[in-house]
Write a protein that binds this DNA or RNA. Structure first.
Lengths: 200, 200
DNA sequence: CTCGCATGTCACCGTTAGGTGACTTTATAG
DNA sequence: CTATAAAGTCACCTAACGGTGACATGCGAG
């Protein structure tokens, strides 16, 4: 044993991610996390106060939601110069690809969709704040007349997030092959088409 | 006590629906269902073999997935005469309204999205079969060139199903007010716009 | 009427969960 | 060296779960 409080805290936080990837948010509990961390569960209470606070720390430490750079690349200025519909397209496709790299985030999204608890409420609020921020940054020239376009964007995000959630375990949805790159190429194509519809 | 096997079976099946509406698929277990039915849990094993088979019976009894009439109204012939994009639009809007009337079905959809089990696999397969059937009936004239349109349709269905799932407990997603009729009107409008994009 | 079987009740088992108090070990300040 | 407080271990509690065997009860055939 190392007898180092900070390191043990860190191991617990990482164990949350591991447990999420391996067994999903179901079965995520004090006992499971402690088991994965190889640590006594009582330390969760001592160091964090409880599972809720540990999960909160996990949410802070990991940027479990992708950063703006991860979604947009480094070309924010380029994107801002595009017409609105193409801006939406760039954000959506970037977000899709970023999320596909983050199984733990998808797991949290699934959780959020299914359970309402103080923790998931916090995560949901953070996600909403994130989208408001993107909006403010990339669409500062948007007025009420762009509301339909932005609603369409949210609907499309909802759509591929749902597909990502189902792809964790299932392999096909509505004829789309979720386990093949070809299937996701079709999804990307559908997003592009839908965005073009938003402009008029 | 009534001492009527068939009636008790029926009460158990109905209790599944009640338990689903009241407490969600989480916490749906032998004990909970028996409690709601006001019946001893051992009867679930005696009459059905176990919870899985009881749930299967629930899936059969309730048309928990809406019928074609419920989605399309009685005007199938009229819809078939429309251009493809408008046909998609009619199906999607009909499905959205039908699902909004069926909280239990939405609960099952959430479940399906989150847990992979023999039962949810069966439900998922049934849903896929349903969509294949709609496709065959309404789009018998569709060729490979319509594949993008149908992918877009599936993406939009995924989108509003996700919104329906979140609307059970949350109230806002990506700026859309899920607890107000105005929010859903925006969603419907976005679906219409996206469908129009599919034709070219 | 009464006997037998179908119907329904009850008590109990093992397991797992969240949670807590009391214990042991180790680093370090004095 | 030693006292002490932090760090970590252990044993145990209650509750809920899925599941099962033994029991009580009422209906209907003979």
């Amino acid at each position: 044993m190392v007898r180092d409080k900070e390191q043990t805290r860190q191991r617990l936080i990482e164990a949350v991610g591991t447990a999420l990837s391996e067994h999903g948010f179901q079965g995520l509990g004090v006992n499971a996390v402690a088991r994965v961390a190889g640590v006594d569960k009582v330390l969760i209470y001592r160091y964090f106060g409880g599972l809720a606070e540990l999960l909160e720390a996990y949410g802070e430490s990991q940027g479990f939601w992708p950063s703006r750079e991860e979604v947009l690349g480094r070309k924010v200025a380029v994107i801002k110069a595009l017409p609105k519909a193409e801006r939406v397209e760039a954000v959506l496709l970037g977000l899709l690809d970023a999320l596909r790299q983050r199984p733990q985030t998808i797991e949290v999204l699934a959780w959020e969709a299914v359970q309402q608890s103080p923790l998931t409420a916090m995560l949901a609020e953070r996600r909403e704040a994130w989208s408001r921020q993107i909006l403010a940054e990339l669409f500062d020239d948007a007025g009420p007349e762009d509301r339909p376009l932005l609603t369409l964007a949210s609907l499309l995000v909802a759509g591929f997030q749902y597909l990502l959630i189902r792809a964790r375990r299932g392999s096909v949805y509505g004829g789309i092959a979720l386990d093949s790159e070809a299937g996701w190429a079709e999804v990307r194509d559908a997003i592009r088409r839908a965005c073009r519809a938003g402009c008029n």
